[in-house]
Design a protein around this nucleic acid. Sequence first.
RNA 1: GGGCGGGUCGCAUAGCGGCAAUUGCAUCAGACUGUAAAUCUGACGUCCUCUGGACUACGGGGGUUCGAGUCCCUCCCCGCCCA
Length: 382
Amino acid sequence: MSIEFKILKKSKKSRARLGILKTEHGIIETPSLVPVATQATLKALTSEEALETKSQILIANTFHLHLKPGEKIVKAAGGLHKFMNWSGPLMTDSGGFQVFSLGFGKDFQVGKILKYFPGSKKEVIMPKANPKSLKITPDGVRFKSFLGGHELFIGPRESIKIQEALGADIIFTFDECTAPLVSFKYAKEAIERTHRWAKICLETRKTRQALFGIVQGSRFKSLREESAKFINSLDFDGFGIGGDLGSTKEQMNKILDWVLPHLDEQKPRHLLGIGRLEDLKNNVQNGMDLFDCTAPTQYGRHGVAFTSFGKLNLRQTKFLKDKKPLDSKCHCSVCQTYKRNYLAHLIRAGEITGLRMLSFHNLHFFNTIVENLRKEIKRENI
RNA sequence: GGGCGGGUCGCAUAGCGGCAAUUGCAUCAGACUGUAAAUCUGACGUCCUCUGGACUACGGGGGUUCGAGUCCCUCCCCGCCCA
């Protein structure tokens, strides 16, 4: 195993823990946010800028990099680290999330956090249902008509081989991230697939890359427990917790309560795709060591800045006359240099520089919050 | 002076007898959690007892018609061409 995880301190007030995750490309102080670099870039930012935002580790995506440019290109370029000029630790997600986002997520126009329950009961996803644009089989997933209409098959073996070629420090098992609309029976069938695939992933991996097994089970207690126990029983280097985690913080905490007691405490835990501003502290208190989220960069590109004074929508005209920095308490280079009026102008003018600066600030802002949470664990405040 | 083309909700466009009227831009508001995402959704004449209704509207005035942005007459304005 090419990672080493050491817990430095455990909170007495919560599950929070302070740790050091060592990889062959450097260490990560945990808990840590993992900014999302799907296509081997934090959208709009260079790898040097990513470092300046205090990002410690990035997560790229197997599905997207397999399509473009293809893992052979990345491998020939010397691997993902060299390819994107990021010398720090990297993860790759397995493509399991795309089974959801390009499948039922797209069909029902829902995210993995359900905001509303669309329509009547007949819309609940029943066993053997398949999304429009992909087919989930016992062996993997056939993605129909993505690039130029040709089909693409990714199963556990394919995902691991791609991730080995990409060469991240930490890789994930190929799972089925289920939609929040699945019925119990569907979810049960899905974790059976996910578990079978998890074993195949473990058997397939030939490299020294750390492999994290992903716990699924949707919003169902028995399935979450079963999944946690099963994934824990295999020789993974860490855990991912994925899928539907309910619609509220309370529901998510309840689901995590079902899962966490069954996971080996000594192994790192990654909460997949949960990391909005309001989640960060909760994630840490739940003992999550890593958590990725697209929010900082995505909101940035959509014109929204997170600040100590709340979210700002820089598209609003009022900011054209605002001479304050985005966040007077922020030490990032954008806040040191530019004012809201200029940023609002860039956003309104559709200038990419504005999106870049908001992405940069948001990442710095999120990373600083998590950095402060680490200090809080050290001071025994949380 | 003559010929032609044109004046539509901020701008630009569509419309050629049933229209509060297309589309784009702009504007305003909202959404975004392992990135189909520099994206998407909604509003955008006024008012109201607002899954509906009333009023005012396609340069001005008049006419034809059950009904006119659309047809006719006339005036005003703009553009191009010829004198």
